[in-house]
């Protein structure tokens, strides 16, 4: 299915349409693969914005909802990270399940680090049963980067094989073993890319590999280097990859020059040019400057051919996501759906 064919089926007014209970799945539109709102937004041709929720170190479901509410009216989907940085937090599946109960559109991140193919396939079915409509496949940070470096890394699958596995579950309605499913998981399947680290010239081949394996959308690592992104996107457009896949580019809110330098040196795969760090260092109010940089990046990236949306990652800066999205104007006045918090029936099962 090409992207263009599908564009015609997603009408603008359908994008925000809901069932009676916000937790209920939306009716699936023609040519769509999931019941989700995130897929509707992209297929209707809107410029999408997603963000990332930091799963709590807690068993409290309200904490998840409080953190998600910060993004109300500013984002189309919320990524629930899967032990990011190899640190232990509430599981991505549980965070997604809590979010779907009130109608949010979460993206379940699945990393290959902690689970083998038996566990991942089982969790994927469970996630779909709990109302999750979007998944994102990742290799995962190495256990050495986290707070349990003594843990056994699994990496039974890699992110490309995992993407293929999810497509087999959904499209062929079977496990990898060949055993049939009674009902396949209706998921919008995505994967990640990092165009900013070596081998730079082959990163676009890596994107092609992920698309061939079945990725329908892509979320990228932080972009702080627009010229580098432009090169990458130009090659992706030339190869026709942006016709087959929606590409969302990651942007970040940097709080200070010190944090930026620390991230560059310690967080795997983060590329921050010296000019960005110098600008933060020279700023009178670095916090504000960090947000200004993010807003400018968002506006610049939106204009690049082939970019379908932005993924705002603002770890410990979550309260500013709404601010940067609003100031950047990338949603062009569109207000993404958010739950009505005064509705006390939310989450109840009749």
């Amino acid at each position: 299915m090409s992207k263009n064919q599908l564009d015609q089926s997603g009408e603008v007014q359908d994008v925000e349409r809901l069932g009676t209970n916000p937790g209920d799945p939306l009716p699936m539109l023609d040519g769509h693969v999931s019941h989700g709102r995130f897929e509707r937004v992209l297929r209707a041709g809107h410029f999408a914005v997603t963000t990332e929720i930091a799963p709590p170190d807690s068993a409290d479901p309200d904490e998840v909802l409080v953190r998600a509410a910060l993004f109300d009216g500013h984002v189309d989907a919320i990524n629930a990270t899967d032990g990011s940085g190899a640190h232990c937090h509430m599981s991505s599946l549980a965070v997604c399940a809590i979010l779907t109960r009130v109608g949010y559109s979460p993206i379940l991140q699945i990393s290959c680090r902690d689970r083998n193919r038996i566990s991942i396939q089982g969790d994927t079915l469970g996630a779909a049963a709990l109302g999750v409509c979007n998944v994102l496949t990742l290799s995962g940070d190495d256990v050495g980067a986290g707070d349990h470096p003594e843990a056994k890394p699994v990496f039974d699958l890699d992110s490309v094989s995992l993407t293929k596995t999810l497509r087999i579950l959904r499209d062929e309605s079977r496990f990898l073993s060949g055993r049939k499913l009674d009902l396949p998981p209706k998921l919008f399947i995505g994967s990640s890319i990092n165009p900013f680290v070596p081998p730079i010239k082959n990163r676009v081949d890596q994107l092609a590999k992920k698309i061939n394996a079945g990725a329908e959308y892509i979320q990228s690592q932080y972009c702080f280097d627009v010229p580098m992104l432009k090169d990458f996107m130009a090659r992706a457009v030339d190869m026709g990859l942006t016709e087959k896949c929606y590409i969302l580019i990651g942007v970040g809110v940097l709080p200070s020059a010190r944090t930026a330098s620390w991230m560059r040196d310690n967080v795997p795969g983060v590329h921050i040019p010296d000019s960005v760090i110098a600008r933060l260092k020279g700023a009178e109010k670095p916090l504000r400057e960090g947000r200004n940089i993010c807003v400018e990046l968002m506006q610049e990236i939106k204009e690049i051919e082939g970019v379908s949306g932005l993924h705002v990652m603002a770890y410990r800066q979550e309260k500013w996501v709404g601010d940067v999205v609003k100031r950047s104007g990338v949603l062009e006045g569109r207000v993404p759906w958010s739950p009505d918090h005064s509705d006390t029936t939310i989450g109840t099962v009749s």
């Binding site: 290799s139 890394p153 890699d158 094989s161 070596p198 081998p199």
Partner: peptide, 29 residues
């Protein structure tokens, strides 16, 4: 170190070295 058969991962260092083993060139580079 992640035994990726369709690599590389997104953590490769700017100098092309492995994220996990900084003294080893990324096998996918």
């Amino acid at each position: 170190p992640k035994t990726l058969r369709n690599g590389p991962c997104g953590g490769v260092r700017a100098n092309g070295m492995c994220e996990v083993k900084p003294d080893m060139k990324c096998v996918w580079v």
